[in-house]
Nucleic acid binder design. Structure first.
Ligand SMILES: Nc1nc2c(ncn2[C@H]2C[C@H](O)[C@@H](COP(=O)(O)OP(=O)(O)OP(=O)(O)O)O2)c(=O)[nH]1
Ligand SMILES: [Mg+2]
Ligand SMILES: [Mg+2]
Ligand SMILES: [Zn+2]
Length: 603
DNA sequence: GCCGTTTTCGGCCCGACTGTTTTCAGTCG
């Protein structure tokens, strides 16, 4: 019996991060601080509910959670608070922690301003800087004040955007590609030998903190000068000999690093990250007697090579190979087991965009799509697909004109006619007829079973009453999953990146039910959704589920979004075998039929 | 505070850029 509300993974992670921040300000042991940061990050990126893990007594199985932090989390979950954490939170005000969000304001500066000038909020910091009160402090000058004011402005700009400082990959990626194209166009031919996106964008993370670009050039100064003067650049944060940092008008930061050829391999490895992956690889290198930085390896003397001996790598793969590691696809570089797998040479063969044979969720003018059935089919064929499931919305969705049984009968005629034309022209393409059937508030579906039975592939999803409590919305989806006509659970968590948090749905129970019934879990590739995300995708496969990658296209252009879904899948360690729409149409349909035959009654 | 195909103790990644530092700390990548 608990009297407090259940803490989410995100909330527990935030508390641990808050502890780490306060320990930083109090100048605690730096490894203790890192331990709390690591535990926070680990829990933030956990696919399973921390309460369930605690209930199973398995907290210390979480990477970075040992006895100390494990016990504290347990106390937190059971009592709603932990006395030692409470003391830390009472000791250092939130406002002082908030000050560390200001660029160039770290724990040391925040501590001194707090202790020596009593500044305990970003607002107070701004006032003091504007009044010129900071320059009296040793180590601070007029420039520091200026920088702090600029930093506060930048912070405000970043936080006024919905979700805070990170932007969805779907927004950032086109901007980054555009900047690279501009750079290449503005520079003389040959100035850029190689240029590549690095950082979280190369790893296809769903949100991007900043863009990182690596460039190989014999004229670094020219490249960076050109970069800093691109039209979209609003401000220059830093400009040194090897790297520059700028801010665009929309608040997005872009970092450029320029290197010479012999450093390319190590530099790309470094700049791709993640930080946690880099640390893991560098620790492994040390065990082999080599110190790794962004230039290459230097022997420490602890191994066979004499101390000071250097190794350089023109290609990233050469560096991994030297460390006796399989080359790690960037999407896996999150220190979630990939380094160990690379050592064993057991990394998964990740699926690729080219593996997709068709899609199973998309819309036409029969509901809220902007193109006809034939137009969408042509677009799908142009993508190299061999099938596409017409899954217009069912009735039950307020604003959208739904497709009922009668309309489906007429739509079937149109689909059959298109397929007949393909067959006559000997074209290996087939339209399927389905529905994106609404899971109504009580778990009933927006179409009757006898109508669903006549469809090829049924996607069930939620677009309304998304604020139901955890038990209600989970039971609602379970009911749909156990309907034998439902083939795919569409965008299961309902989140919209930067706009709407996921519903309270218990994904562990949902995924277990999907595995039980053979219901396929969707990776909705629309970059506003990316739902399920990488973590749930990986968990789904662990539990034995199959997945489908769908653009949920409402227009022909939307089909280009598939690459974002593939990014999620690869980050979830998925192979082609895990994703049903990598199969030819008949094999894919046979798989769904099998699941239907083996369907269980809902317990 | 966490962790272990060399360890249950003794490690824990490494460098660029900035400012006022007169020799390097702080912050960030
Ligand atoms: N070895 C090492 N590499 C780091 C560290 N911090 C950052 N890096 C590397 C790996 C990162 O992927 C890369 C770019 O840094 P960013 O701060 O931009 O991080 P990243 O792009 O991964 O995520 P983001 O979405 O920008 O927050 O630099 C560090 O502390 N140590
Ligand atoms: Mg970045
Ligand atoms: Mg960066
Ligand atoms: Zn849809």
């Amino acid at each position: 019996m608990t009297t407090h509300t259940r803490l989410t993974n995100r909330e527990v992670a935030a508390i641990l991060a808050g502890v780490a921040a306060r320990l930083q300000i109090l100048d605690a042991n730096r490894f203790r601080i890192i331990a709390f940061q690591n535990a926070a990050e680990s829990i933030r990126t956990l696919a399973q509910d921390i309460n369930a893990i605690d209930a199973a007594g398995e907290l210390t199985s979480i990477q970075g959670v040992g006895k100390g932090i494990g016990d504290a989390i347990h106390t937190l979950l059971v009592n709603g608070s932990d006395p030692e954490f409470d003391a830390l939170f009472a000791q250092v005000p939130q406002g002082v922690v908030d000050m560390m969000q200001v660029p160039d304001m770290g724990p040391k500066k925040a501590k001194r301003l707090w202790e020596e000038l009593g500044i305990d909020s970003v607002a107070a910091l701004r006032a003091a800087a504007e009044a010129g009160k900071l320059r009296d402090l040793k180590g601070f000058g007029a420039k520091s004040e200026e920088k702090i004011l600029k930093g506060i402005e930048l912070l405000a700009k970043r936080t006024e955007r919905g979700d805070g400082e990170r932007m969805p990959i779907g927004v950032v990626r086109p901007l980054a590609l555009h900047m690279i194209a501009e750079l290449q166009a503005k520079l003389p031919a040959g100035a850029i030998e190689r240029i590549e996106i690095a950082g979280s964008l190369r790893r296809w993370k769903e949100t991007i903190g900043d863009v990182d670009i690596l460039c190989l050039s014999a004229q670094p100064a020219l490249v960076m000068e050109t970069f800093r003067t691109l039209p979209e650049v609003a401000d220059i944060l830093g400009a040194g000999e090897t790297k520059s940092s700028v801010v665009l008008g929309n608040g997005l930061q872009v970092d450029l690093r320029v290197v010479e050829r012999k450093h390319w391999g190590a530099a790309l490895q470094y700049f791709t990250g993640s930080k946690e992956h880099n640390v893991a690889v560098r620790e492994l290198a040390l065990k082999q007697g080599w110190s790794l930085n962004e230039y290459g390896l230097t022997a420490t003397g602890a191994g066979d090579a004499p101390a000071g001996e250097e190794r350089f790598f023109e290609e990233e793969a050469d560096l991994y190979a030297f460390l006796r590691l399989e080359w790690v696809p960037p999407e896996l570089r999150e220190n979630r087991g990939e380094v160990a797998a690379a050592q064993q040479h057991t990394l998964p063969a990740l699926l690729t965009l080219a593996d997709l044979q068709g899609e199973l969720h998309g819309h036409t003018t029969w509901s809220d799509g902007v193109a006809s059935v034939a137009e969408m089919a042509e677009a799908a064929r142009a993508r190299g697909y061999h099938y596409w499931n017409v899954s217009d919305h069912s009735v039950g969705l307020g604003i959208v004109q739904g497709v009922d049984g009668e309309k489906l009968r007429r739509q079937r005629v149109e689909i059959d006619a298109y397929n007949r034309r393909c067959a006559e022209a000997d074209i290996d393409f087939r339209l399927l007829q389905g529905s994106e059937v609404e899971i109504l508030a009580d778990g009933a579906l927006g179409l009757p079973d006898d109508v669903l039975a006549g469809l090829d592939v049924v996607v069930a999803s939620i677009h309304s009453a998304q604020r139901q409590d955890r038990e209600t919305i989970t039971a609602r989806c379970l009911k749909a999953i156990y309907n034998p006509h439902v083939d795919i659970l569409g965008h299961p968590t309902g989140r919209l990146l930067g706009e709407r948090p996921p519903t309270e749905i218990d994904m562990e129970r949902i995924l277990q039910a999907c595995r039980e019934t053979g219901t396929v879990v969707e990776i909705n590739a629309n970059p506003a959704r990316l739902d399920v995300n990488d973590l749930y995708a990986r968990r789904a496969v662990e539990l034995g589920c199959k997945l489908a990658i769908n653009c949920d296209a409402h227009s022909p252009q939307d089909l280009t979004l598939a690459e974002y879904g593939v990014g999620v899948a690869r980050r979830g360690w998925l192979t082609a075998a895990d994703v049903i729409n990598t199969r030819p149409v008949d094999a894919m349909l046979a798989l769904l039929k099998d699941a239907q035959r083996n369907a269980h009654d809902q317990p």
